[in-house]
Design a protein around this nucleic acid. Structure first.
Lengths: 207, 207
DNA sequence: CGAAGAATCAAACGATCGTTTGAGCATACG
DNA sequence: CGTATGCTCAAACGATCGTTTGATTCTTCG
């Protein structure tokens, strides 16, 4: 059993520093020496607690995606199959949890890590993400298919993919997603969600 | 003066191999040793011809972006300011040249390199891209502003940014952009452009 | 031809990478 | 108390990184 450390357990400190440095410098660009120095732990701690750098990368994803996709699925279940559900409702179920994470202090960098994962065409990482979280995208796509029955399968896949790209890009912090200092946090989140949902719904429902 | 080599000049061979390996493994992930081996040139050739790895990265961008943005600007000039110009026309001027490049044998990997550049928050690279090619995005945004006068500045920036994200994502090869073997190249390009333009125009014109 | 310059080459530079080792410290349990 | 067990630590492992050097080859031109 681990002794209760001063501030945070070593594993959590490593995961936090890894998230920040992976977002800033990429998976190959961030070294374990920078990482462990930032976390204030010994260099060997990574291999002791995680086995390897690759396994650490997977854990960085697992920690956030388990929560993020759990909330997405829960939100989807609340509207899926209902007769009065709109495209906007489904988009809100997809976007809302991501925005909560994105504006949640320690998790705000994870969206940038996720954007990097999309840019990586590394097969191992992509297979890990597809195996563990592919079912979420499939469920959302199925619900969109129900709400947009006039779209061919190919047309639907196209549009869902374009929506994914737009949201990933926006939420990884390139856009104007930064909150102005005179706007309250929660209100800014709602306005951001409204922007994203309006744009994506328009694209999805395009004739 | 360079002697005329067997196939391609050394500089071009390096640029070609760099584009492929940067797309596949990232800027830090691709080493000069892999790169020069793939190009069939000596390791020292990179520093001899380009000065450093960072300067090589810049040249990889310059070679493609000069052509890409030149064509974009030329296409934009043909429709900008005209009274009968539509949002779709401007989008076509932006997307068409990128699709030509994306489907042009040796240039097909460059869009993936560009997607990586977006994921990199490296200040040096971003400043280079902004300084050299920022005026292109500004010109297109100005034309969108003319065609969508009811949008606030903030709203317009939001939507242009979302369009950029969607297109970068799609053209870097995550979507279904791959051509089926029974569809002719040019027809597939037109259909792809039609998909992208319809989606983006819908998002931009959203009420 | 012969000198000059451009280009290529093998080899090495110091720095840094991910990973491993083995000793040392702390806590837990008989 | 003594001895496992979980954890941390400094140090080192071999490999690989970007870059530099100095000699060698090739090309051009007086």
């Amino acid at each position: 059993m681990p002794a209760h450390s001063a501030a945070l357990p070593t594993k959590e400190r490593i995961l936090g520093a890894a998230e920040e440095l992976f977002a800033r410098h990429g998976f190959e660009g961030a070294s374990l020496r920078q990482l462990t120095a930032a976390a204030g732990v010994n260099l060997a701690a990574v291999n002791y607690h995680f086995g390897s750098k690759d396994r650490l990368i997977e854990e960085v994803f697992r920690r956030r995606l388990d929560q993020l996709n759990g909330r997405r699925m829960a939100a989807l279940q609340r509207v899926a199959g209902q007769p009065e559900t709109s495209v906007e409702d489904v988009l809100a179920a997809f976007i809302g949890p991501a925005l909560e994470l994105s504006h949640d202090g320690s998790g705000s960098l994870f969206m940038r890590v996720l954007a990097r994962a999309f840019a990586e065409h590394d097969d191992t990482l992509r297979k890990f993400l597809s195996d563990n979280y592919g079912h979420v995208m499939r469920q959302f796509t199925a619900e969109f298919a129900r709400l947009l029955p006039h779209l061919s399968k190919e047309e639907l896949y196209w549009r869902v993919d374009l929506v994914t790209g737009a949201l990933t890009h926006a939420m990884s912090g390139f856009g104007m997603i930064q909150r102005k200092s005179d706007v309250p946090e929660e209100r800014h989140r709602e306005e951001t969600a409204a922007h994203l949902i309006r744009f994506a719904a328009s694209g999805l429902k395009s004739p």
